[in-house]
Design a protein around this nucleic acid. Structure first.
Length: 424
DNA sequence: TCTGGGGTCCTAGGACCC
DNA sequence: TCTGGGGTCCTAGGACCC
């Protein structure tokens, strides 16, 4: 049976999450900041109208935001993750084929009905999410994922569509694509956009009609796939089960610069624990680990040092103490005193499924206690992250990130539940 | 003072093999 | 004097996404 793709995308997701338990903020301007309150990562429509861009540094905007009485939030991933999960669950209850594409987007496969718009059904889905979770979504429908993305943009940008647009059998498709800038096509970023513009390819329509050979040569097969998708040839199938991660990263900027090896060791140990927990949660083990550190790249007047080092493990492991030993070895190899480090991170690679680890013929047989890791992971899942942690990760964590405007974890922490007052 | 974090895919080029 | 051709694997880096 022929299918169409529907892209369900939560509107201004993080901002909408913050509003959910603060209804007085509806129609009020809101921004959500990245870790360390560094830059803007979500804006309500009112803030978009002020010209604030995604990724703008907060410190440059402070005055503007204050002047317009913008409500500022630090990111609260416990809240966003939980609400995302609720939205996705509704979609999965309604439809069998759902690909969770990101925290705020999902592709849903719908049966194709020729000559008839799929908008009525899409509207009912949208309404159901609003009623059950309270998050507004927009839906774009098309014969390929890329066209569904285009349709989603149209649904959001044109109020008259009521948040749903179906481009599948549109007889105005040329006109619609001609109104879409080429950089706004999914998969075309700044660099490719520049190349295309130099070639006179300015819109989604130009791209659809572009020369395949030139595209293949200049934008590689990924670019060619985008062109085919714009022509209605589906090249990107729905991925129902998320594949295991091939690499797992945990990295963060520091709340204040780190200059001592002792502090840096604590930070790296903390990030390592996070990465190792993710590794175990997908039932994998890592064959190699990479540690990287860097000073503040924006501060050009300060001595810079950026370095990374990789180490192979004697055999793939998901056992935190063994991973930690390798991580510390790397860190000691690259750390230089006399620098103000701003960021560090850990990457686990060469990931294999725990069941199929190669045993090292020559190395020492290592004593791992998987039961200990399981117990720690269970406790931390139940009682919150870092309830139990390795001692190397430290307690005071003077370098930890700054979050000055965090809302409560309304839905995931008993002590932060919203309180409703009834009046007679 | 103050600029996020976590991923994937693709290609070019070097090393190495027969 | 004359120095092939084809293949694989690995890595670093670029580009893109949200």
């Amino acid at each position: 049976m022929k299918k169409v793709f529907a892209l369900v995308d939560c509107n201004n997701f993080y901002a909408s999450c913050e509003r959910l338990f603060r209804p007085e903020l509806n129609n009020q301007p809101i921004v959500v900041l990245s870790n360390n309150d560094g830059c803007v990562i979500a804006r309500s429509n009112e803030v978009k109208a002020l010209g604030v861009k995604m990724g703008d540094p907060y410190f440059k905007l402070k005055d503007l935001l204050a002047k317009h009485h913008v409500h500022v939030f630090s990111s609260n991933y416990a809240l966003y993750g939980d609400l995302s999960c609720r939205v996705m669950t509704i979609l999965q209850q309604m439809e069998p084929e759902v690909e969770i594409y990101s925290i705020d987007e999902a592709f849903v496969s719908l049966p194709y009905t020729p000559g008839k718009l799929h908008t009525d059904y899409a509207r009912s889905l949208k309404e159901k999410v609003r009623r059950c979770v309270g998050i507004p979504v927009a839906m774009g429908i098309g014969p390929t994922k890329t066209l569904a993305k285009v349709a989603n943009r149209l649904a959001k940008k044109n109020a008259q569509y009521g948040g749903v647009f179906d481009i599948t059998d549109s007889n105005q498709i040329d006109e619609l694509l001609a109104r879409c800038d080429v950089e706004d096509v999914w998969g075309i970023g700044r660099q490719s956009g520049r190349k295309l513009r130099m070639r006179g390819i300015l819109t989604a329509r130009d791209l659809r009609d572009a020369d395949e050979v030139w595209i293949r040569k200049n934008l590689t097969v990924t670019g060619l796939r985008t062109v085919m998708e714009l022509r209605g040839v589906s090249c990107l199938p729905l991925e129902l089960a998320p594949p295991d991660k091939k690499s797992i990263v945990s990295s963060k900027s520091f709340g204040r610069p780190v200059s001592s090896l002792a502090d840096m060791k604590e930070a790296v140990a903390t990030y390592l624990s996070t990465a190792a927990e993710k590794l175990r949660s997908q039932g994998s083990a890592a064959g190699a680990i990479q540690v990287f550190i860097s000073t503040n790249v924006f501060n050009v007047n300060q001595p810079q040092h950026t370095q990374s080092m990789m180490a192979s493990l004697p055999q793939p492991s998901a056992y935190t103490p063994h991973l930690l030993k390798a991580a510390m070895h790397c860190l000691e190899g690259i750390f230089r005193s006399g620098y103000l480090y701003k960021k560090a991170g850990v990457m686990l690679t060469e990931i294999v499924s725990s069941g199929q680890q190669q045993i090292n013929m020559f190395g020492p047989v290592s004593a791992e206690k998987p039961e200990l890791m399981q117990a720690i992971d269970r406790i931390n899942r139940k009682w919150g992250r870092q309830t139990v942690q390795i001692a190397a990760a430290g307690l005071a964590k003077p370098w930890k990130m700054v979050q000055a405007h965090t809302s409560p974890a309304y839905t995931t922490n008993w002590s932060e539940l919203p309180i409703v007052n009834a009046t007679s």
